[in-house]
Amino acid sequence: MVTTKEVVEVRVIPFKKKTVTDDSLAKGERVVRTAGVNGTRRLVYRVTFVNGVQTGKKLVRQEVAKAPRSQVTAVGTKVEEQAGGGCDPNYSECVPIASDVDCSGGSGDGPEYVAGPIDVIGSDIYRLDADHDGVACE
């Protein structure tokens, strides 16, 4: 005896994370601006049974029941002026001397961020010039 029935499965759609820079926050300070929320997807399958034993499963349709909401985290870039300068001499603009520096709006995790374009005039120690053309954060 062959029977079929529709089965609904619900799966989680993980939220994405985005980092933005904020020059009103102290450098390195992190604030979640928008909390991330997972979404859900409904999957409808047609399941076939022969003598009560499942023999097939085919996806009939799927839909996003609830869209995920990305988490947005702001990272501060406000730098207090320092008497000694505090800028790396390998770059034409002030790139702070830090354990790591990334381009604003990129996927890096700081703790320091800079906006370009910035000419690399020495060694690109923070690897800000992704295409090695002498201009960083473009």
Rank of each mutant, 00 (worst) to 15 (best):
D129T: 08
D100T: 03
V101D: 01
C94Y: 01
Y126G: 06
I121A: 03
P89L: 14
E93L: 14
E93G: 02
S107E: 11
N90P: 00
E93D: 11
P111T: 09
Y91R: 09
C103I: 02
G86H: 08
D102I: 00
P96V: 04
S107P: 13
C94R: 01
G134I: 09
L128M: 10
S92F: 02
V135C: 10
G85F: 06
G86A: 13
A98D: 13
D102C: 11
S104Q: 13
G116Q: 08
V114W: 05
Y126S: 04
S104K: 13
C103R: 05
D109V: 05
P117Y: 12
Y91L: 10
E93H: 06
P89A: 14
G116H: 09
S92E: 07
D133P: 15
D129V: 07
D133R: 10
C94I: 02
P117M: 13
P117N: 13
P111F: 03
R127W: 01
C103L: 08
S107D: 13
D131M: 14
V114N: 03
G108K: 02
G110R: 07
P96E: 01
V114C: 07
S107Q: 11
G85T: 13
E112P: 07
C103P: 10
G84K: 15
S107M: 09
Y91F: 14
I121S: 06
A98Q: 12
Y91H: 03
C94Q: 01
G116R: 10
I121H: 04
A98K: 10
R127T: 06
D131H: 13
V120E: 04
D102W: 01
H132S: 15
S104W: 09
A115V: 13
A115E: 14
D100M: 06
D109A: 02
V101G: 03
G134V: 10
G105Y: 08
C94M: 03
I125S: 07
D124R: 05
I118R: 08
C103Q: 06
V135A: 12
N90G: 12
I125W: 00
D109R: 11
Y126Q: 08
P117C: 08
P111D: 07
D129N: 11
G105R: 10
A130K: 13
G110A: 09
I121L: 05
G86M: 05
I97H: 00
R127C: 04
C87D: 00
D88I: 10
N90L: 02
H132L: 15
S123L: 12
A115I: 10
G116K: 10
G106P: 12
C94V: 04
C103D: 02
A98T: 04
C103F: 09
I125G: 01
C87T: 02
Y113E: 05
D88S: 14
R127D: 13
P89N: 14
G134E: 07
C103N: 06
G108R: 01
I125V: 14
D102E: 04
P117A: 09
D131K: 14
D124H: 09
P111V: 07
Y113R: 07
V114H: 08
D131T: 14
